[in-house]
Design a protein around this nucleic acid. Structure first.
Lengths: 247, 247
DNA sequence: TGACGCTTTTGATCTGCGTCAATGCTGATG
DNA sequence: CATCAGCATTGACGCAGATCAAAAGCGTCA
């Protein structure tokens, strides 16, 4: 356990799967998805001066629950899991951060969850103090951050319904449909393959299930010809089955 | 079902249990708890001109999921349940709004949950458009609203852990400890009696359980001398039992 | 005061998912 | 290419909490 993060700033172009700002926000692939969409070229230029790319290996820790919030992050490539842990080791994955997602929207002094790279990951990092000073001067940005927070609150409420009131089958269907929508938004088109870079255990902890139940339900869906399991994800065969079941 | 709201504006002093602004925000009993804490006397005065007290009977609907957000609310007295419903009738209570709580922190155009009065309730109501125009001019207020949203996001994440990973006994303990803390904050002192104005069904829908399980667990706690059940609430006998179990 | 409606409690039984235990698969490494 | 480590899958079984059913409180109103 506990692989330390090896993050080498300003070395974003270290692999084909990792695309990032590349030190020029204007060409950032996730700008239109991220809070930066609130900024004009001028403001973007200012913000860029405060940014530094951080690269994380699979399993690296971006920050831990209880840590001081010294930096905030904009994920530009890769996927992270956001985790709340109980003292006895039980985990709840509260969400997955995908490209365009912002970590640090809340104003607390310490993180209330841990973030770990599920895949190799690149994030645009800002010192918290700098970012706050900047946002203080840019009402657009504050508004946009509040919008993002509202959106997250809605997702959190969806998640509560899922955890409290759905069956295992409905949970899986909802999760897969959600991932499909999120990848679609990111790529700009309906993906044939729904990428699932996180492991079964992460999915289980996201859905409030065990790894065995996740495995059983997905494989049952495959046996029932609702989907096919492929390396690194699934492919829907019967879309309407999922639409009917999902939250 | 479906009792229509009888709300009579500007008639707040209609009962001993119902205390509200009384048309003067300076004397508002929940000011220090609510977003109004961000405002000085001057701003408070302006805001007051836009406010109107709404009184709701038990079971009255403040607004419904999907309704347009035409007003936002500051609960000044009483308790409301916030509900997400599934098409087949399954419900998830995402939260209880207590005095000082603000409804409408999100910026969406439509409500994503319904709010119903659990007890007779008074809320300070603002036309959404007026409130937004006002907040536009008061950066303090925007900041405070973002603070409230952050706080709510944390609570939502706590709730996810509760729903996804706690046992029925732990859920009940966490709920009771949470209610004790919230009433303590509102009243300003540790209450001997933990008021539970909501019914067992609401508690069950908040905790992702059935009404029978809620009843069984609470009554078992009483048999084990951990608490005593009294009209309208419970009284802790063994505080440390709850502290150990609660999230 | 007694009949009604609603909520809560209690008991008996069932079942969806968890737990425990193998086994299989895949990709990395010497 | 054999070994190993880390998932993922599968099966057998158990149990926490759901479901079904009935009884008990309790406030309201004629």
């Amino acid at each position: 356990m506990d692989i330390p993060a090896r993050h080498s700033d300003h070395e974003a172009h270290s692999g084909c799967a990792l695309r990032s700002r590349g030190d020029d926000c204007r060409f950032c692939g996730v700008r239109h998805l991220s809070i930066c969409q609130a900024l004009d070229i001028n403001e973007l230029d200012q913000l860029e001066k405060m940014a530094s790319d951080s690269v994380y290996e699979e399993r690296a820790v971006l920050f831990r629950e209880e840590d001081e919030v010294s930096s905030v992050f904009n994920v530009t490539a890769g996927v992270a899991r956001l985790i709340r842990s109980l003292p006895d080791g039980r985990r709840q994955v509260t969400g997955f951060a995908l490209p365009g997602d912002f970590l640090g929207i809340s104003l607390e002094k310490t993180w209330r969850y841990s973030a770990e790279a599920v895949t190799p990951l690149v994030a645009c990092r800002f010192r918290r103090s700098h970012f706050e000073a900047f946002s203080e001067k840019n009402p657009h940005l504050i508004k946009k951050m509040h919008e993002f927070a509202s959106q997250e609150l809605n997702l959190a409420q969806d998640h509560m319904v899922l955890l409290g009131r759905l069956t295992a089958e409905e949970k899986l269907a909802s999760f897969l449909v959600e991932m499909k929508k999120r990848w679609a938004r990111i790529s700009g088109h309906e993906p044939g393959l729904i990428r699932l870079p996180m492991g079964r255990q992460d999915i289980a902890d996201y859905l409030g299930l065990t790894i065995e139940t996740v495995s059983r339900v997905i494989n049952q869906m495959q046996r029932d010809r609702k989907l096919v399991i492929v390396p690194d994800g699934v492919r829907f065969v019967d879309q309407s089955y999922f639409d009917d079941l999902a939250l």
